[in-house]
């Protein structure tokens, strides 16, 4: 159970991550704020509470793995890794710039702490399955976490991978779905009638849980339930708001892939209490 002190620490981490997302995107002049902001609470929970990892030893064999399958949300991952100490926070200003280790989409060969190179959607769950299979062969009791986008689930490979996770009963794998209901061209359901992800994953054999993706206590409760389920993989559907925390970005598909200008960054930071 999360203590009150830990909870307020995690909320503060999430606020920091959101601020860093705005700062680095404004400095970069391009990138994806909406889906980064919607995942900030989850990453705060994972990187500063849930996951077994050591920023001083990124290649620690027994560490938990986090795969950002929706790779365009790189800013939230970079913010979390910097906050955790994988690299200096000042690096965040170099996002997307020539020579930076912070590529437009995550590159596991350049950035310490990035577990898999993503960006071409639909591949992260497969890779996470591979990590979980390897851990089982090696007798390592770590966990593998993967974050999928709802738009991303339009990729057929997600469902190939969803079958594999169940077939191999990967009960130490937890997938999160950032269910913010928006993608570049608009509402997910308008773009291609992708509805009710829970029943879809359930019909594939997954243990499906759902919670408010901005309520860290609720995320923790869902995670506890996921850990108690031993028959196979669990999916936690995070009901989220794209652009969460910055009022003018919230629920706006236009903020999927557009960086804030300096004054927009400052307005956002002010809203976040900076």
């Amino acid at each position: 159970m999360l203590s009150e002190a830990k909870l307020s620490e995690l909320k503060e981490k999430a606020r920091q991550l959101r601020a860093d997302i705005l700062r680095m995107l404004a400095a970069a002049g391009s990138g994806h704020p909406g889906g980064s902001l919607s995942a900030a609470d989850l990453l705060a929970y994972l990187y500063f509470y849930k996951m077994r990892h050591d920023p001083g030893n990124p290649n620690w064999r027994e560490r938990d793995r986090f795969v950002l399958s929706k790779g365009h949300a790189a800013p939230v991952l970079y913010a979390a890794l910097a906050e955790a100490g994988y690299f200096p926070k000042t690096d965040l200003d170099s996002l997307r710039k020539f020579g930076s280790h912070l590529q437009g989409h995550p590159d596991m060969k350049r950035t310490p702490g990035v577990e898999f190179s993503t960006g071409s959607l639909g591949q992260g769950l497969s890779a996470a399955n591979g990590m979980a299979l390897a851990a089982r062969l090696d007798g390592i009791d770590n966990r593998v976490y993967v974050l999928l986008g709802d738009g991303e689930c339009e990729e057929g490979q997600v469902w190939e991978a969803a079958m594999t996770s169940v077939h191999y009963r990967l009960n130490r794998l937890t997938a999160f779905l950032d269910y913010n209901r928006l993608q570049i061209d608009g509402n997910v359901e308008d773009v291609i009638s992708f509805k009710d992800p829970g029943s879809r994953f359930k019909s594939f054999g997954w243990n499906v849980l759902e919670c408010d993706g901005h309520d860290i206590v609720a995320i923790d409760q869902a995670m506890t339930a996921a850990e108690e389920y031993k028959e196979g993989p669990s999916l936690i559907i995070l009901r989220t708001v794209k652009g969460k925390g910055v009022s003018f970005m919230e629920n706006q598909a236009g903020w999927h892939g557009m960086a804030p200008k300096i004054e927009e960054r400052d307005e956002g930071l002010k809203e976040l209490g900076f």
Partner: peptide
């Protein structure tokens, strides 16, 4: 134990192999 039948899902097979390789396997 070291053979993974992936079904008719070549895309998934290749990315799963990649995941195995990140953990030191030679897929």
């Amino acid at each position: 134990d070291r053979f993974f039948q992936m079904g008719i899902a070549e895309a998934d097979m290749i990315s799963t192999a990649a995941g195995l390789a990140t953990a030191g396997k030679i897929p």
